[in-house]
C-alpha cells in the first residue's frame, strides 16, 4: 500500500511536471520531451496500480496497456518530429531566399490565416496562440 502510493504519486508528479513544461516551453523538441514525460507518468501510475497487492503477482492487464501506450507514444513522437523537420526545412528555405529581396509572401496561405510568420531566428517555436 505504501509502496503503491509512493510510486503512484511519483507518476502523478511526472504527469504534472510534463504538463507544466508542455505549456510553458516553446521549442517543439522540449514540448515532445514534456509530452513523453507526461505519458511516462500515466504509465507509471498504471504500473504502480498493478503492483498494489504486495504479496501476489502483479496484475498483467495494466502491463499490457502500458506496452500499447509506449508504442503509441513513440509513433506520435516520430510523426511530430517528421512534421517539425518539414517545418524547419521550409524555414531554412525561406530564410535563404530572403538574402535576395524578392522574398514574396506565399499568397493564400500564411498571409491570410493570421498565423505567425516563420520565425526568422531559426529555432522552431510553437506557441499556443490566442490570436
Amino acid at each position: 500500500m505504501t509502496a503503491a502510493f509512493l510510486y503512484g504519486a511519483a507518476g502523478l508528479l511526472l504527469f504534472a511536471l510534463g504538463l507544466w513544461s508542455l505549456l510553458v516551453h516553446e521549442p517543439l523538441l522540449r514540448k515532445l520531451i514534456a509530452f513523453n514525460i507526461m505519458g511516462s507518468g500515466v504509465f507509471h501510475l498504471f504500473i504502480a496500480v498493478a503492483h498494489r497487492s504486495d504479496g501476489s503477482s502483479p496484475d498483467p492487464v495494466p502491463h499490457a496497456l502500458v506496452l500499447t501506450g509506449i508504442v503509441v507514444a513513440v509513433s506520435a513522437t516520430a510523426l511530430a518530429l517528421a512534421l517539425n523537420s518539414r517545418l524547419e526545412e521550409a524555414d531554412a528555405k525561406a530564410s535563404s531566399s530572403k538574402t535576395t529581396p524578392s522574398g514574396a509572401p506565399e499568397p493564400n496561405t500564411t498571409a491570410r490565416t493570421g498565423l505567425p510568420k516563420p520565425s526568422s531566428n531559426g529555432a522552431n517555436r510553437l506557441r499556443w496562440p490566442s490570436r
Binding site: F5, L13, L45
Partner: peptide
C-alpha cells in the same frame, strides 16, 4: 510560467490526494 507552475502544482496535489483516497 510561474503562475502556470503554481496551478499545475495544485493540480498535482489534488490528484495525489484523490489517489490516496482511492488506495
Amino acid at each position: 510560467s510561474l503562475l502556470i507552475g503554481i496551478l499545475v502544482s495544485l493540480l498535482a496535489l489534488l490528484l495525489i490526494w484523490i489517489f490516496y483516497t482511492t488506495l
